[in-house]
Amino acid sequence: MKKVLLPIVLFLFCACGKEKEIKLLKLVKTEYDTLVFNNPEKIARANPVMYGVNVTSDSVINLIQPWFQKEGIFSDYNHATKNDSLRIYVDNSSFFHSDLHGLSNTGVPPPPMKLNESEEEYEKRIQDYSTNVKAKITHQAMLPVYIYNESNRNQSLNKPVNGGDLFLITEAKNEKGEWKPIEYFEQFTFLCGTGHQDYLLKSKQFIVAGVKKYSGSFKTKLRLKLNSFGKVFYSNTFEGSINKKQFETTELLKEIKGKFQGSTEERLKIKLEGLFVN
């Protein structure tokens, strides 16, 4: 029997005392057969997924559907510095799930068309097959992320050319209580002719995204770090568990040395801070 998570309505987030409470939108969760948790043996590549841009607290977001381009959500570069009133909230009270990280529906492929079989006969046989044999739905555990423009004017957010929907990585506290990245950001350098534009987030509206939910034996505090036009924003702090090996950067540094010459330490720093450079 498939497991179903019911729709929920969430409310944000007076963690900082006098901050104004913000009503969050409705998230629609869908059924699944198998839920996979992220438990990597090394620092992981960040892969934030966008589900909605310029949505309001009255919107409904289906978390199984990826974000798609809509008119009027991109900004010009002359707004690039006006992004100082963003709030980021991660809801860790209940995770959702997505098939957007390479874990797709799996199952036996449909049968091929037989010799001397008409198209009508084949279509009927495919319909019978689809009714009797259903693919197994495998999803990956993720956390919902809300980026809110609390100012009275529109704001711009840096959009990667390639490598993800946002410059967003996860950090965790190590055994010494220090904040360290447990993800890195892979990003191609800017290429001429891509038609690249950045996100335009309207006043009092949200970007809804998702990030990987990790599991492991080390319980600690986590937060998200957003980099936009060189300005850094942090989310609320939330409880979680990870693998301690996610703090290690030795293998990533070796990988960088294998690809590039020059200041590999600087390239490592760039990847760990989620900056707009490869």
Rank of each mutant, 00 (worst) to 15 (best):
N92R: 02
N92F: 01
S94Y: 02
S94A: 04
F95L: 10
F95T: 01
H97S: 15
S98G: 03
H101E: 09
H101W: 12
G102Q: 01
L103Q: 10
N105C: 05
G107E: 07
V108E: 14
P109M: 08
P112R: 10
M113S: 05
K114S: 09
L115C: 01
L115D: 08
L115A: 12
L115K: 12
N116L: 15
N116E: 13
E117C: 03
S118P: 02
E119Q: 11
E120Y: 07
Y122W: 12
E123I: 15
I126H: 09
I126W: 09
Q127V: 10
D128E: 15
Y129Q: 06
S130D: 12
V133N: 11
K134Q: 15
K136C: 14
I137W: 08
H139S: 11
H139R: 15
A141C: 10
A141D: 04
M142V: 15
L143W: 13
P144W: 00
P144R: 00
P144E: 00
V145C: 04
V145D: 01
Y146F: 15
I147K: 04
I147R: 05
I147H: 06
Y148S: 03
Y148F: 15
N149S: 09
N149E: 07
N149F: 12
N152E: 14
R153V: 10
N154A: 11
Q155A: 12
K159G: 00
K159S: 11
V161T: 05
V161W: 05
V161Q: 13
N162H: 06
N162F: 12
N162L: 10
F167Q: 02
F167D: 04
F167R: 02
I169G: 01
I169C: 01
I169R: 00
T170S: 07
T170N: 02
T170F: 01
E171W: 01
A172V: 06
N174G: 05
N174R: 06
E175P: 00
G177M: 06
G177R: 07
E178T: 07
W179P: 07
W179K: 01
W179V: 05
K180M: 15
K180N: 09
E183I: 02
Y184P: 02
F185L: 14
E186Q: 12
Q187S: 12
Q187R: 14
G195N: 11
G195H: 05
G195D: 04
G195F: 09
H196D: 11
H196M: 14
Q197F: 13
D198P: 09
Y199V: 11
Y199R: 08
L200Y: 08
L200Q: 12
